[in-house]
Each structure stands twice: as structure tokens, then as C-alpha cells.
Design a protein around this nucleic acid. Structure first.
Length: 446
DNA sequence: TCTGGGGTCCTAGGACCC
DNA sequence: TCTGGGGTCCTAGGACCC
């Protein structure tokens, strides 16, 4: 918490939808929904006209269509959104060099880091900023909050939304927070909200009755301590203008689940290629390749492999992703496949050898044959073998090794059920005899 | 016709080293 | 025969955010 209200949060109103309405006058005043247009799409942004019908971000497109069938459904033009965003971010940087974008449509600004910040002229500064944004972007509107901390600035920008602003006078934070639902606190989502409800907490003020130790006990040390502080308005998080990327990933949800392994292999290659290209474009390299799969029942798993050194080579990333896919059970088909890379560095290991070359000839990376292998599955289990009884539900148990059981599994009730993953030490896995291994299973990794 | 795609941060267990 | 702690790296999963 700072002594003055010097942290500003700006949020563009219904950003994607507003850009569409700006560029297509026929859409003005009408419900506009931007998001995934396919069978499995979700709403990214709904215009205020569409929100009147209960359409919200993250809602499935199917539900949005049934709530507001007469809306315009658009898949989005990200180049246009990026262009508008750049204009707004540049305007913010004129206020202060300390600008931290959170996404295309949102940013924090530390006004105190600006050259001639005058707290007494704050209302004028905010009004000028908002009218400049509208003028420079040809009609987009922004909501602005200013307060003594990030937490309060962000909450404040919601208060007069859309096309409004709110300044939190220092000292009034707690009384503003007290009646608000606990979900306004950063990091408190549906799961945490449910846990808190169990101990009688639904508003921010309710949290005050609980000690830090109690909250840590309930939510873990980081979340507990953070909630304890933030709920009291105590927040000294800095605005940081250069945040480094930690990972790059590409994923795709299929219109219908894909079973064919050859097809999945090709898709995996293409996702890995895209990830590698984006990595290089950002002049980065990474060490850990992660494969992500999602099954028909929405259960999601990741498999990762860390290379000896950072790379940005398509070939190596594709190869590694393939190995991970090969070691993954795709039996019942996949709804999503993704390839990511993390452990980022702004250098490539091959660069170490670049200085050794005499001229400017491009250094071709050595073909890397020594990719750390995903070990062959261990055939510890055999068909017909008695295994364990899964207390809840039927299905395959998937992935022994790295603590996961990989037996394909049947129960008395269903020959083959939904895919399920359990830890080898999962209490649901009770030694018994109700299950039968229907296929040899193996171990991945040692 | 439930549930995108891009991320971040945290937790937890096991391996391994000292 | 029994059994330390601390630190770091790797892997996997989950919650959360826009």
C-alpha cells in the first residue's frame, strides 16, 4: 500500500466486441459475440447488448446461441485487436514508463514512476486519459481505477464500468472491501470460494475473522498468506514493465475426438512446429517439452521431457513431442492435443560453438541424434492378470511410472469405461481382485 | 452441442547430492 | 539395523487469470 493513489488500472470495455462494432457500423447497438465459432467454441467477449441476454465470457458457444440466437457471432480479428491495444498501451506509456500489460485490453500503470505526477490533478489525468483513448482508437471506451495498490486499482476499475472511472481515496480501502464478495480478491476462484464458504466466508470482511494460520491451513501457505494480506487491503506488489515469458505453447481442440494414432502423430508434429516457430520468432529457446492431452471426459494430462540444453530447433522439438505422444495412451481418442516448451533461455546451446567458426557462414546445427529416450514400456502386467479394485467407477487406469498406474482396466460392470488416471498410491486403488488387465501395460520413465 | 487458447503460479513427491 | 536434513531439479496436476 502506498501513501497516495498512484496505481492506475485500465480495462477496455467489451474489447473484442467493441472493435467489431467500431469497424462495422451495422453491428452497433446490436448483440455481438466474439469467440470460437466451431462445435466446441466458447465466448471470448460479449457486447453489452449480448450480456443483457445472460451471455458471458467463457460460456460455451452452444449456450450463447440458445440465449441470444439473433446475435452476430464472430471468430475474431486479432490483428485489429493488437493494433488497437498498441495504441492504448502507447498512450499509457506517455503517463509513466512503468506500464504492465495484463492482456491486450488491460494494464497497470505506476503513476508515481512518471515524470510529473501530481496527485492533486488525478481526476483530470483520468478524464484526459479516457477521452484520449476513445479519440485515438476511434471510439473504444475504457474503464479506469486508481488506488494505492494493484488490488484496489483493479477492483476500482470495475466499479463504474463501462466507460467510467473510480478513484479510491487512501484510507478507505478496508471499508470499500468489507461488503464485497470474496471472489474479488486476486487468486480467489470458484474452488477457493467453495472452500471458504465451508468456514462461513462469503465476503471480504468475513475473512478478517480468521487468522493467517487458519487460512494457511485451509488453502496452503502461499494462497493462505496472500489472502490474509490482500483481504485487509495490504498489497505492495510492484508494477513491472518487463516480465519475461516462461513458456510457449500451441494447442488445438478438435471438432470431434480423434482416435487414429497416425493422424494424431501428424497433428502433434504440426503443433510442435508451430511452437518452435513462435519460440524462434521470440528469439528464445527452451529445455522442457510438454505434451498435453485431453480425453472425451475432459480429464487432462501432461507428459514432459527435459533436454540436456535449450533448443529452438523444430526437428528436436518435433521429435521430442512425438516420443511423448508415443508413450501416451490415446485409446479412447483425444479431444485436445497440445505441445509446449518451457525452461526458456534467450540463448541456444549451439550458439556456444558459433564463435569457433571462421567466417559469417551460417552455423548449421549438428543433427541431434541423442535425444533422451522415453524408456520402453515395462511389460510388468499381463492380460487377464488380477490387479486392483477401483472404488469409484470403471475404466481404464492409465500410466504407471512416474507414480501413475498404466493398466488398462475392466470391472465387472463395464468392459471398457472412460479413461481415468490415478496415482499409484491413490487411496482409490485398493488391493483386490475386481479388475482385470485387458491389455499389457507398461511403465513410462524411470 | 457443456467446457478455447494463451498463459502464470503453487504444491507435492521422488531422485539425487552433500 | 536404522535412518538426519537441506537444497535443487524434474515431473505432474490443479487453480486461476484474461
Amino acid at each position: 500500500m502506498r501513501p497516495t493513489a498512484s496505481i492506475l488500472h485500465l480495462d477496455l470495455d467489451a474489447f473484442f466486441a467493441s472493435v467489431e462494432q467500431r469497424d462495422k457500423p451495422s453491428l452497433r447497438g446490436k448483440p455481438v459475440i466474439v469467440g470460437g465459432i466451431g462445435q466446441r467454441g466458447v465466448v471470448s467477449t460479449a457486447s453489452y447488448e449480448a450480456r443483457k441476454f445472460g451471455v458471458r465470457s467463457a460460456m460455451s458457444m452452444a449456450e450463447a446461441r440458445s440465449r441470444c440466437p439473433h446475435a452476430a457471432f464472430l471468430s475474431g480479428r486479432f490483428d485489429a485487436y493488437r493494433a488497437a491495444s498498441r495504441i492504448v498501451m502507447d498512450r499509457l506509456r506517455a503517463l509513466s514508463p512503468a506500464v504492465e500489460p495484463l492482456s491486450l485490453d488491460e494494464a497497470f500503470v505506476d503513476l508515481a514512476a512518471g515524470e510529473d505526477f501530481d496527485p492533486d490533478r488525478l481526476p483530470e489525468l483520468v478524464d484526459e486519459l479516457r477521452s484520449d483513448v476513445t479519440r485515438l482508437t476511434d471510439g473504444l471506451t475504457a474503464s479506469v481505477g486508481v488506488a494505492s495498490s494493484k488490488l484496489m486499482a483493479k477492483i476500482a476499475s470495475e466499479i463504474e464500468k463501462p466507460d467510467g472511472s473510480f478513484i479510491v481515496a487512501p484510507g478507505t480501502e478496508r471499508s470499500l472491501l468489507e461488503p464485497m464478495p470474496i471472489g474479488v480478491i486476486a487468486g480467489v476462484g470458484p474452488a477457493t470460494e467453495a472452500r471458504l464458504r465451508h468456514i462461513g466466508v462469503t465476503t471480504v470482511g468475513d475473512v478478517w475473522r480468521h487468522s493467517e494460520a487458519e487460512l494457511v491451513d485451509l488453502l496452503g501457505s502461499a494462497s493462505g498468506a496472500s489472502l490474509h494480506r490482500l483481504s485487509r487491503g495490504m498489497d505492495d506488489r510492484a508494477v513491472s514493465s518487463h516480465r519475461e515469458n516462461k513458456s510457449v505453447s500451441t494447442e488445438d481442440t478438435f471438432e470431434t475426438d480423434i482416435v487414429d494414432r497416425a493422424e494424431l502423430g501428424l497433428i502433434c508434429d504440426s503443433l510442435a512446429r508451430k511452437t518452435a516457430e513462435r519460440l524462434r520468432r521470440a528469439q528464445l529457446s527452451g529445455r522442457t517439452v510438454t505434451l498435453k492431452v485431453r480425453y472425451h471426459d475432459f480429464t487432462t494430462h501432461t507428459r514432459s521431457l527435459t533436454l540436456p540444453g535449450p533448443t529452438d530447433q523444430t526437428r528436436l522439438i518435433v521429435q521430442t513431442a512425438r516420443r511423448l505422444l508415443d508413450a501416451t495412451d490415446t485409446g479412447g481418442g483425444l479431444r485436445l492435443l497440445g505441445v509446449g516448451i518451457s525452461g526458456l533461455a534467450d540463448w541456444v546451446q549451439d550458439d556456444l560453438f558459433a564463435e569457433d567458426t571462421a567466417d559469417d557462414e551460417p552455423v548449421l546445427p549438428e543433427p541431434v541424434e541423442e535425444v533422451p529416450a522415453v524408456p520402453e514400456p515395462r511389460r510388468d502386467w499381463s492380460p487377464g492378470m488380477d490387479v486392483h479394485h477401483v472404488e469409484h467407477g470403471d475404466g481404464w487406469v492409465w500410466g504407471r511410472g512416474m507414480g501413475l498406474v498404466t493398466v488398462r482396466f475392466e470391472t465387472r460392470h463395464t468392459p471398457v469405461g472412460p479413461v481415468r488416471t490415478l496415482r499409484a498410491d491413490d487411496p482409490d486403488l485398493v488391493p483386490g481382485h475386481a479388475g482385470t488387465v485387458s491389455q499389457p501395460a507398461g511403465t513410462v520413465g524411470e
